[in-house]
Amino acid sequence: MMASGAGGGAAGEGEWLMVAQLRATVQAQDPRAKEVDNLTLRRFLRARDHNVDKAAAMFLKFLQWRREAVPEGFVPEEKVRRELPQDKVCMGGVDRTGRPILVAFPARHFSANRDLTEFKSYVVYFFDTICASIPRGQEKFLLLVDFKSWGYSNCDIRAYLAAIEIMQNYYPERLGKALMINVPYLFMKAWKMLYPFIDNNTRAKFVFVNNKSLHETLRREIDETQLPEFLGGKTPLISLKDCARQPQSV
């Protein structure tokens, strides 16, 4: 794993000293922490506003979760065999800052048909996939959520909360921005239920794009050559099942 300071924003000497403190703390409690690079530890540190004790507790909880939820180091396709073919989440191009784009289609999710345990594995599957695609010099991805055709049958608060919990607790500082497009009024009622469970840092990353400014906003964030075809760009979406993946910790 990469242990240098490249990517993810500038870090001063003071921050790296805190990363060293965090490493000493977590390695004393769990030897597996030795396998994790400094950039990963820095993400946990930043997620807890540079409080070493809180970051250590968060990271140790992550190691325990990873061992239980992903014992093989990655999610095998057979564990998400019902979720994967639905293409609820696909890979796009990259935004203007070089962050890979993850595209989600909530209207392809039906609460009546989902198994929550498998859905959680699917969430880990697509987060591992997008994180494995992040190039050197970057640490984050752009999430593009298209709510076109979303309705009552697609609303699934338990699944949404599960995805938010996994993202916040086990993939900290990976989400760069989430563009929410074609959002129906109905979803805003669901959002009010989800909002209290989203931490302040993550809340600030969600941008609800007005339909009138959709074209302008998308092209400000993404070059036309990298914009998905279904939004008027030139990049075809790639199904997750077609992405070559490597085991990824966070």
Results as ranks from 00 to 15, higher is better:
143 L>T: 02
106 P>G: 03
244 A>N: 10
217 T>C: 13
169 N>T: 09
22 L>E: 12
140 K>W: 00
205 K>C: 11
94 V>S: 12
209 V>A: 10
95 D>Y: 01
121 S>K: 14
239 S>Q: 14
160 Y>F: 08
169 N>S: 13
38 N>I: 13
239 S>I: 00
47 A>N: 13
80 V>F: 06
110 F>L: 14
40 T>W: 07
197 F>G: 07
76 P>W: 02
28 A>L: 11
90 C>G: 03
192 K>W: 03
58 M>Q: 11
86 Q>N: 09
233 G>T: 09
45 L>D: 07
225 T>N: 09
56 A>R: 00
84 L>S: 01
62 F>N: 06
182 N>S: 07
47 A>I: 00
85 P>N: 02
215 H>F: 13
116 L>I: 15
229 E>I: 15
163 A>D: 09
226 Q>K: 07
156 D>K: 03
29 Q>H: 07
250 V>T: 11
154 N>V: 01
86 Q>D: 06
61 K>E: 12
117 T>W: 04
59 F>H: 05
220 R>K: 15
78 E>K: 03
14 G>D: 12
71 P>A: 10
26 V>Y: 03
81 R>P: 00
65 W>R: 08
47 A>K: 03
156 D>N: 15
16 W>Y: 10
65 W>F: 10
223 D>I: 02
144 L>P: 01
39 L>I: 15
53 D>M: 04
102 L>V: 10
143 L>S: 11
204 A>H: 08
131 C>Q: 11
189 K>R: 12
83 E>D: 13
64 Q>H: 08
39 L>Y: 04
243 C>P: 02
78 E>H: 08
12 G>M: 02
17 L>T: 05
228 P>L: 04
78 E>Y: 05
146 D>E: 04
132 A>E: 11
55 A>F: 04
143 L>Y: 07
138 Q>R: 09
99 R>S: 07
249 S>N: 12
182 N>H: 14
215 H>M: 05
17 L>C: 04
117 T>N: 13
102 L>S: 11
158 R>P: 00
182 N>E: 08
109 H>V: 05
167 M>F: 03
92 G>D: 11
164 I>F: 14
11 A>H: 04
177 K>W: 01
189 K>T: 14
68 E>C: 03
20 A>W: 01
233 G>A: 08
152 Y>V: 12
247 P>R: 01
189 K>I: 08
135 P>A: 06
224 E>P: 01
12 G>T: 01
101 I>N: 02
201 N>I: 06
139 E>V: 06
8 G>M: 02
125 Y>A: 05
124 V>H: 14
140 K>M: 11
